[in-house]
């Protein structure tokens, strides 16, 4: 009992994840995917862009787990390298959007008035434009590349975070423990660091994990349409898109990367869902 009290919030969270089946399984799959793609050269001896025109469009087997594509490149190798892009897209724009949205949401709730109005109307505008449409416009303007995909995803995602963070912050600022802090003489910064941010954290984590699958799917879709990541860079969406003309003759070419997208998205989705359950104070036991 005594040792249990000493645990900090991070350790408690880790323990709760071990006890939650969905969190455990999806977490392990995510870990496996991260390891596979990070140490890709250990798992394959092919090059992700190395062409072998003598062995084009080979069926699975013969040293090629998922066969080869129209230029004789090993599909399994390309999936591992494409997963790197997906993971980067999963974390980088999502994290930046979460940071931006949190900062703007807190500003809106703290300063109210004109600041609040401007930030929230901007968020409204972003939320009212369909995300994919907006991303397409950005990508046509900036040209398809990893950087422009990241930028467009940040622009799509910050609004929702800002909106939720603002409303939670407003509620927190009204709470009695903030009132107690103020009546003890604490200033705005103290209240922010000690009370607002720690209490916002579960909300931000959940929003973050739920945005991850959305980011991966958007990147895949944009690359599938040919306006996202450009060859010779590898992306799962790009692979699926390029293979669609062989869908009936050689379905594994499209199904393997599409399946990988599904596995990544579902694991992050289940993990985010489980995390929401764990962090919900109502379900937490003493």
């Amino acid at each position: 009992m005594k040792a249990e009290r000493k645990r900090n919030t991070g350790q408690e969270l880790f323990r709760a994840c071990l006890h939650n089946k969905a969190a455990l399984i999806s977490g392990l799959i995510i870990l496996l995917i991260i390891l596979l793609s990070t140490f890709a050269p250990l798992f394959t001896h092919y090059d992700e862009t190395g062409q072998d025109l003598m062995n084009r469009l080979m069926p699975p087997g013969n040293g090629h787990l998922f066969g080869t594509d129209e230029l004789g490149r090993d599909v399994f190798t390309r999936i591992l390298y494409g997963t790197r892009v997906s993971l980067l897209i999963a974390l980088l724009p999502t994290a930046l959007a979460a940071a931006l949205g949190t900062a703007l949401g807190i500003c809106a709730a703290s300063f109210r008035g004109a600041t609040d109005f401007i930030i929230m109307r901007l968020a409204d505008i972003m939320l009212s434009i369909p995300g994919m449409l907006f991303a397409m416009v950005v990508l046509y303007t900036l040209g398809g590349s990893l950087a422009s995909v990241v930028i467009s995803l940040i622009l799509i995602e910050w609004g929702e975070t800002a909106r939720v963070v603002r409303s939670v912050t407003l509620k927190l600022r009204e709470s009695e423990f903030v009132e107690a802090s103020v009546s003890a003489g604490a200033g705005g910064l103290h209240v922010m660091i000690w009370h607002i941010l720690p209490n916002l954290l579960p909300t931000i984590i959940v929003l973050f994990t739920l945005n991850i699958p959305a980011s991966i799917l958007s990147e895949s879709a944009l690359s599938f349409l040919g306006i996202g990541i450009q060859p010779p860079q590898v992306s799962l969406g790009l692979m699926t898109g390029a293979s669609r003309q062989y869908l009936f003759q050689m379905p594994w070419l499209a199904l393997a990367p599409a399946g990988m997208i599904m596995v990544i998205v579902l694991s992050f989705h289940f993990f985010g869902d489980a995390l929401r359950d764990i962090l919900d104070p109502g379900r937490r036991t003493a």
């Binding site: 709470s175 009695e176 423990f177 009132e179 107690a180 720690p198 209490n199």
Partner: peptide
Amino acid sequence: QMIFQDPASSLDPR
């Protein structure tokens, strides 16, 4: 200093 009505909400849960 003030002592509040609802002991649950006057203490920061985190």
